[in-house]
Nucleic acid binder design. Structure first.
Length: 503
RNA sequence: UCCCCGAUAGCUCAAUCGGUAGAGCGAGCGGCUGUUAACCGCUAGGUUGUAGGUUCGAGUCCUACUCGGGGAGCCA
């Protein structure tokens, strides 16, 4: 008899006026005597469900009233459009079935600390912020695959257990492989180069592992990286590929996840400006900028801004504290308390930035040509620009053995990093590869590496060597930049950090 | 490996000069027919991270440790 259809919340707009059933979890609820507002989530979105006394049996009305957060249930009712409701649609409930009542759900709709949320990661997924980031991550990953698949690239799955060392031995996880030491991959690049000589354009996409002892908001020990590798390409060609690639990802997210970006508070205007060409600087130009007046003035201005921001925050805190001790209503006190908590944590961050500013200024001013750019240096350059910046031609000594020496200046290599704008920093690192057998062998020796383990890699330069290159893009860093999320650990479902694995 | 900050109720945080440990949220009960982190009233909830020290008296001061946060180096 029932022509009742079970639908997902994101399809409600197609069912206005119809009777439907939703299945999901109770995200939040408010009761007001004879009317209740249930916020239901079902994985596709949130929907406010209105339960009015008289429209459902009294017994059910009472039962729903005492349902805890995250109880699972089915609700049936009529879909109607209503501006007052989030999403613009709501359900006038006529019936409901509790599947599993929940009591004492630990993550309340109020504020929680990072450590608490990380320890409850398995539940934290259900929160709006994590849900939005997960949806954007899905789009980013799909856009990555689509871009390469649609542009003639062939997917090559490179091994996780590796015998070769891409960069620095100390940053590798060693595993006992039936008594023989192997390493978890930190790049698929060397294998990919061999594949590029077969397919021309290839890419690999998977998890990668770094044992660096880095405890910052930009580091994970396990993260996802996509690496294209192209035969017959030069540095300008690689930069063009990278900027088209990043632009494509950003456009896809803008098209598919505008609601999520808004909800996350991402800088949409900034994302809309992302289009080729990106800025191009050489390492030498970058060092000159860092040591020059522009950077000094920029940091001084930033310090002044931070200080005035701090002063404003402090006086606002004092003002609120004053109000708090006066005779006011309870709800006003709550509001003030919530604002105070926010202001105090903002103040702590301002203090850190004020404290770091002179150090960063000194590091930049005294930057010696030849050193690799530090995190703070990248942040400075990145903050000075409103679009991504390519930094190219780093000193040979600071870089990996496989990067191609610039034939016009043998102190530098034909490599590049791409810095995301507005302070997020590096999201891509890449290079043209050394294609000359003798030069590559010399570099292997110079860096104290074992030529024996690189036999097969050297072979690629023996049999029809061609100019080729590629780069690696960090998925979580890209995601953090796009979503405006401060910490990379929020951008992967189960983060693995130095010395810390929660679940 | 180094530097800075922190640990008080299930959660987020207060506690002035060293003087009996407080709010809100959440939980429980009651009220309210349009709420948007709803609101109002009542109830329960604590060995102040651990170990020692100073003191008539320590959440507060000192030492060590444990755990957590941020940053440097290095990197996607």
């Amino acid at each position: 008899m029932s022509k009742n259809t079970t639908v997902y919340i994101d399809q409600l707009k197609h069912h206005v006026g119809q009777q439907v059933t939703l299945q999901g979890w109770l995200y939040n609820s408010r009761a007001s005597g004879k009317i209740q507002f249930l916020i239901l989530r079902d994985g596709t979105g949130l929907c406010q469900c209105i339960v009015e006394k008289g429209n459902v049996p009294d017994e059910l009305f009472e039962r729903i009233k005492h349902l805890g957060q995250e109880s699972s249930l089915k609700v049936t009712g009529t879909v109607r459009a209503d501006e007052r409701s989030l999403g613009g649609h709501e359900l006038a409930v006529t019936d409901a079935e509790v599947i599993c009542p929940a009591e004492g759900y630990p993550i309340t709709p109020k504020a929680h600390g990072v450590d608490f949320l990380m320890k409850h990661r398995h539940l934290h997924f259900r929160s709006q912020r994590q849900w939005c980031i997960g949806k954007v991550r899905h789009t980013v990953v799909d856009a990555i695959r689509r871009f390469f698949n649609d542009n003639g690239f062939v997917l090559i799955d490179t091994p996780i257990f590796t015998t070769v060392v891409g960069e620095d031995q100390t940053s590798l996880f060693e595993v006992d492989y039936f008594g023989r030491p192997l390493h978890l991959t930190q790049t698929g690049q060397l294998y990919l180069e061999s594949a590029a000589m077969s397919f021309g354009r290839v890419y690999c996409f998977g998890p990668t592992f770094r044992a660096e002892k880095s405890k910052t908001r930009r580091h994970l020990t396990e993260f996802w990286m996509v690496e294209p590798e192209v035969a017959f390409i030069d540095l300008p060609g690689l930069l063009e590929l990278a900027e088209n690639f990043v632009t494509y990802i950003v456009r896809r997210v803008l098209a598919d996840n505008r609601g999520e970006l808004e909800s996350l508070g991402a800088d949409i205007a900034l994302l809309e400006r992302i289009q080729p060409p990106f800025y191009r600087l050489t390492y030498t130009e970058t060092v000159e900028i860092l040591k020059g007046d522009k950077t000094r003035d920029f940091l001084a201005r930033e310090l002044a801004e931070l200080k005035s921001e701090k002063q404003q925050t402090e006086s606002r805190i004092a003002e609120l504290e004053q109000q708090q001790s006066g005779q006011i209503k309870q709800w006003q006190k709550d509001k003030i308390a919530a604002e105070l908590i926010e202001l105090r944590s903002a103040l702590a961050e301002l203090d850190t930035r004020i404290e770091n500013n002179p150090t960063h200024a000194q590091l930049a001013a005294e930057f010696p040509w030849g050193k690799d750019l530090g995190g703070s240096d990248e942040t400075i350059i990145s903050r000075m620009h409103d679009k991504p910046v390519f930094v190219t031609h780093y000193p040979k000594e600071a870089k990996a053995f496989y990067m191609r020496t610039d034939r016009a200046n043998d102190k530098v290599v034909e490599n590049f990093d791409m810095l995301a704008p507005a302070g997020f920093g590096e999201i891509i690192g890449g290079s043209v590869r050394e294609d000359d057998y003798e030069r590559l062998l010399a570099r292997i020796h110079a860096q104290g590496l074992d030529p024996g383990t690189h036999d097969w890699y050297l072979d690629l330069r023996k049999y029809g060597s061609v100019p080729h290159g590629g780069f690696g893009l960090g998925v979580e860093r890209t995601l953090a930049w796009i979503t405006g999320e401060k910490h990379i650990r929020q951008c992967i479902p189960f983060p693995r950090m130095m010395d810390k694995v929660y679940i």
